[in-house]
Design a protein around this nucleic acid. Structure first.
Length: 213
DNA sequence: AATTTTCCCAACCGCCAGGGG
DNA sequence: GCCCCTGGCGGTTGGGAAAAT
């Protein structure tokens, strides 16, 4: 049994107060990010290091973009999710100022419903049929290695070059996912934003394009 | 206006990978 | 090669806000 990341006794939990936020901001400004385990004590916070890291990354970091998602951001998330699955950190990495938590929440609360309402299975991005997720967690979250463990680090070959606002999101690799064991065809996604809606309308035979009407 | 239900999101939890000793 | 520690990730939850009754 692994020991907890910190001593839960005597640590604050739940929502952060303004004072706590300020202490964390002040500390990181002076000392920079890192060494999260030691940070709470050094910064005078009664928080676990993990909690500090999360608070900083998801909320306090100066480059965090807050507010509603733009339409092109939502489109990009859907496209990247079709390609990468629940790889929120990778998806967020293509959305400047957005965090994985934010993307994940937005997906679960908005985009999932939106797709479902359009008759698209949000798990596999296909129209009108539910494909068994025999791979469980790994089925939509990365490329499982042969031993069943996640193998994210090997994903660099995707070499995605997205640029929100540049109308350009392209997978530099083959752009397709290999056929899986269920015999389903490749998604073959070309991640190009802002396809003229008139063009998309004519391509309803392509399920992936349905997403972006 | 009061109560209940639903929705959203910040925060937590557990697991995993990588690095160092 | 093994163990421990830390950072990072994705799934889940709890509580407040908003909407519905």
């Amino acid at each position: 049994m692994r020991s907890p990341c910190c001593d839960k006794q005597g640590t604050n939990r739940g929502a952060w107060s303004k004072e706590e936020d300020q202490k964390l901001i002040d500390y990181v400004r002076v000392h920079g990010e890192g060494c999260w385990r030691a940070l709470p004590k050094a910064a005078g916070l009664l928080r676990c290091g993990k909690s500090c890291r999360l608070r900083w990354i998801n909320y306090l970091r100066p480059d965090v973009k807050r507010g509603n998602f733009q339409e092109d951001e939502a489109d990009l998330i859907v496209k990247l999710h079709a390609l990468l699955g629940n790889r929120w950190s990778l998806i967020a990495g293509r959305l400047p100022g957005r965090t994985d938590n934010e993307v994940k929440n937005y997906w679960n609360s908005h985009l999932r419903k939106k797709l479902t309402g359009m008759g698209i299975d949000p798990d596999n991005h296909r129209v009108g049929r539910k494909v068994p997720l025999h791979q469980s967690r790994s089925s939509n979250s990365g490329t499982p290695s042969s031993d069943g463990t996640r193998n994210y680090k090997n994903m660099s070959f995707w070499n995605l070059n997205s640029k929100v606002g540049d109308n350009r999101v392209r997978c530099a690799g083959s752009g397709s996912l290999e056929e899986n064991s269920s015999g389903l065809p490749d998604l073959n996604l070309d991640l190009t934003i802002c396809i003229p809606s008139s063009v998309v309308e004519k391509n309803t035979a392509n399920p992936t394009l349905l997403l972006f009407r």
